[in-house]
Nucleic acid binder design. Structure first.
Length: 392
RNA sequence: GCAUGGGUGGUCGAGCGGUCAAUGGCAUCGGGCUGUAAACCCGACGGGUUAAUUCCCUACGUAGGUUCAAAUCCUACCCCAUGCA
């Protein structure tokens, strides 16, 4: 029996609509997964994620939860689902990205990565094995292999060495993952229907902007074999066209019967463009981080609620948005909340942004199912550019 | 009325003869956030002008004065705070 099941139900060009079933929820793809690094999607209660926003899967992060509160406490309290009360699917990142983003605080070896905790500076060690152990304690539905994500501008040789190590780490991740499953260390075990009730494991393809290296990484990763495949190492400082080129090259070559997950991406435009090139899953901090810092996404482009021009604007963030924030609150009020430092501003804008992203993906899925995605893409991208004074 | 301290750019507050259009905080204005070290970071912030760290103008309560040179020293006046009558 398999831990997850994914079926394509419609396709248009490279774009695919599908149904992903995990032991904890049914997820329609293409899907956007809100990021909940520390066991919370910042500023948004699970009640909202479950009802209005209807997110079926969110992220958690190995590195952050490993540092605080620690895997042992979470295990003791029954895993991340039980601890946090989120009962739908979880995807946990392996800590691999932190190997990249905490570059000044780490020491990298074949064995793993020695970190200085960003919280108190203490020494911590993370390896493929430890990452799997932590993720088993978290009990997520989708576990990510522990990888290294080199900078976008890393040269060919350095990127190649990195991807080869990532492949070795992927094998070690898988080996330890299987042991842990067999030992019953997964706190999220949940037998249901025709699924095994176990965790699933995704491999990660690296290679930066070098297509031959992407190909090499793809071969190494698929040879090991995973339940799903992720494209890592994009949107880390490279040109946007490089990202699209890599996706366009890589996605169609990835296994057709497994979900394809583009890690850490992206803007509304990126999502549509990546779906167009064959990607099924996304996650990004953008809706919540920008939400906290005054940036709101609308069908006509981004707006910055701090701008003085919104001081007397009685219109909602996005006139076309059906979310509860847009139905009730004006830009003028939201701006006032932001300017006065009220936490509600961050909460409300994060909520709207998530609604916008999730709603966008619903429209994308509907369009693929109706065979109108190509037109939708064109119209959506055109409208995004508008952002004229009359609109904002 | 007397005594003491003080009046600086939107605001609070440094500066106490030249390197001062004047440190810094806040406010304001703008920009940026892509597997979250981020309720954060960066920039602008008297007016005009320039290719420019260029030049000009207006500014440190008001009015005079000393000096080559004053936000900085002196005199008078006007305000404010505290204390004493």
């Amino acid at each position: 029996m398999k831990p997850i099941d994914w079926k394509v139900i419609a396709r248009e060009g490279e774009a695919r609509a599908g149904i992903l079933r995990t032991r904890r929820s049914v997820i329609e793809t293409p899907v956007f997964m809100p990021v909940g690094t520390q066991g919370t999607v910042k500023g948004v209660r699970y009640e909202w994620l479950e009802t209005e926003l209807d997110a079926r899967i969110i992220l958690g992060n190995t590195y952050h939860l490993f540092l605080r509160p620690g895997a042992e406490i979470i295990r003791e309290l029954g895993g991340l689902h039980k601890f946090s009360t989120w009962n739908r699917s979880l995807l946990t990142d392996s800590g691999g990205f932190q190997v990249f983003s905490l570059t000044d605080l780490r020491k990298l070896t074949e064995e793993g990565v020695e970190f200085r905790s960003h919280i108190d500076g203490s020494k911590k060690f993370l390896s493929p094995e430890i990452s799997m152990e932590v993720q088993a304690a978290l009990g997520s539905e989708i576990v990510m292999v522990f990888d290294e994500c080199p900078p976008g501008d890393a040269g060919f040789e350095r990127t190649q060495k990195s991807l080869q190590m990532t492949a070795r780490w992927a094998q070690r991740s898988k080996d330890r993952f299987n042991e842990l499953q067999n030992e019953g260390q997964d706190t999220g075990f949940w037998e249901t229907g025709d699924l095994s009730g176990r965790q699933s494991l995704f491999g990660i393809i690296q290679g930066a902007g070098h297509l031959p290296l992407r190909r090499e990484s793809l071969d190494l990763t698929t040879a090991i074999g995973f339940d799903g495949y992720a494209i890592g190492g994009l949107s880390v400082g490279e040109e946007k066209s490089v990202m699209y080129d890599v996706i366009e090259y890589l996605a169609p070559q990835m296994p057709a019967d497994a979900p394809r997950y583009l890690m850490g991406v992206g803007t509304p435009e990126d999502l549509v463009e990546a779906v167009h090139r064959g990607v099924d899953m996304f996650d990004c901090v953008m809706p919540t981080r920008n939400g906290r810092t005054g940036g709101a996404f609308t069908a006509r482009g981004k707006i910055n609620i701090r701008n003085a021009k919104f001081a007397r604007d009685a219109a909602p963030l996005d006139a076309e948005c059906p979310c509860s924030v847009c139905r009730r609150y004006s830009r003028a009020y939201l701006r006032h909340l932001y300017q006065t430092g009220e936490m509600l501003a961050a909460i409300l804008i994060s909520h709207h942004n998530l609604a916008f992203f999730l709603d966008l993906m619903r429209k994308v899925r509907d369009a693929i199912k109706l065979g109108t995605f190509s037109r939708f893409r064109k119209e959506f991208l055109e409208k995004l550019q508008e952002n004229t004074p009359a609109d904002v």
